[in-house]
């Protein structure tokens, strides 16, 4: 990945990088030479902003996959201090251990106590090793469930931030019941008598993402994905060639606009131009506003109404004929 403005750029941004390089080249040249190229520079800059608009307003599914996986994309722990106050992290599932691939705790949101639970990946190798690349073990899901039940006791809303390639496929995870841990969360989330808001902020990979996803509303950032299998995985099954991931990303309908259209999610949260990593602060304020609106819709509902609304939401998902 090349760097642009200190941000790692992605292949689909290549034309922009080239144009920007040309502009700065010309600028340097004018500064030293005797010729006035300001009109050329101006026209190139106009072209740049047009191109920028064209590229960022017409992102293909594969472009979004790359933005969702961008190493500098803001994570749960980046957003928490920007959106909430008084965050206190709570550790451990009280059964086995503490899974650093999921962070959870309590905080206040516009004066209202809330519980926050989110997948946490690292941004560098060391952190990724500690966080297991954001791929939880059963104890992560059990910690999440413990915090959800605690939230229910104290009648505060639960906000889940989803950002994982999936639950960890490992030996220990199987031994400790990865399947049961995920399945238990699905069933127990169905019965929570407090508002549950699930927001996909990066990758939403399969059951490991859904285990935080049985919300009254599911929101997705514009460049996040939610899928049953990674594009690479789908490509290797469908065409025995994981290099066709790009084609699979389109075929599998995994982007926020796709899921909005399929009515699986309630809202799509717009991203700052080029992706959340370009301006995490501004992105946080957009997410904060989306949370405020959704909680406003849910805060007035009784426990029974919330359970019923969640039930009806998920019961209606499916495409078939009879």
């Amino acid at each position: 990945m090349a760097k642009k403005n200190g941000k790692k750029s992605m292949p689909f941004e290549e034309p922009l990088i080239q144009l920007r390089a040309k502009i700065s080249e010309l600028k340097e040249y004018t500064a030293t030479a005797e010729v006035d190229l300001s009109s050329e520079i101006k026209s190139l800059e106009d072209r740049f902003s047009k191109l920028e608009e064209e590229i960022y307003e017409n992102m293909k599914p594969w472009d979004r996959v790359q933005v969702a996986r961008h190493p500098e994309r803001p994570t749960t722990l980046d957003y928490i201090p920007l959106i909430f106050n008084d965050f206190i992290e709570m550790h451990g599932d009280r059964l086995y251990g503490d899974d650093a691939a999921i962070v959870s705790g309590i905080a206040s949101f516009h004066g209202q106590p809330v519980t926050i639970i989110g997948h946490q990946r690292g941004k560098d190798t060391k952190e990724n090793v500690r966080r297991n690349f954001g791929m939880p073990h059963p104890e992560g899901y059990r910690k999440a469930l413990r915090l959800m039940k605690q939230a229910e006791k104290f009648k505060r809303p639960i906000i889940c931030l989803i950002d994982t390639k999936g639950a960890y496929p490992g030996k220990a995870a199987e031994e400790r019941g990865q399947s049961e841990a995920i399945a238990r969360n699905l069933v127990e989330m169905a019965g929570l008598e407090v508002p549950v808001l699930s927001i996909v902020i990066g990758e939403g990979g399969s059951g490991g993402a859904l285990a935080l996803g049985v919300g009254n509303q599911i929101l997705m950032l514009e460049n996040s994905t939610f899928s049953v299998i990674s594009p690479e995985g789908a490509a290797s099954i469908l065409w025995k060639d994981s290099a066709l991931a790009q084609t699979a990303a389109e075929a599998m309908k995994i982007t926020a606009p796709d899921l909005l259209q399929m009515k699986i999610i309630e809202h799509m949260i717009p991203e700052v131009r080029g992706g959340a990593h370009h301006d995490p602060k501004k992105q946080a304020s957009i997410i904060s506003e989306a949370i405020r609106r959704s909680l406003e819709e849910l805060n007035g509902m009784s426990g029974e109404e919330l359970v019923d609304q969640r039930y009806r939401k998920f019961k209606s998902i499916g495409v078939f004929s009879e």
């Binding site: 127990e188 989330m189 859904l210 049985v214 049953v228 899921l259 699986i264 998902i317 495409v319």
Partner: peptide
Amino acid sequence: ARMQEGVLSLMQMAKTSVALK
């Protein structure tokens, strides 16, 4: 989950769960 129905298949996990609850 059945891959050819994408995320709709994934959501059946949640759908059956809300009914089980």
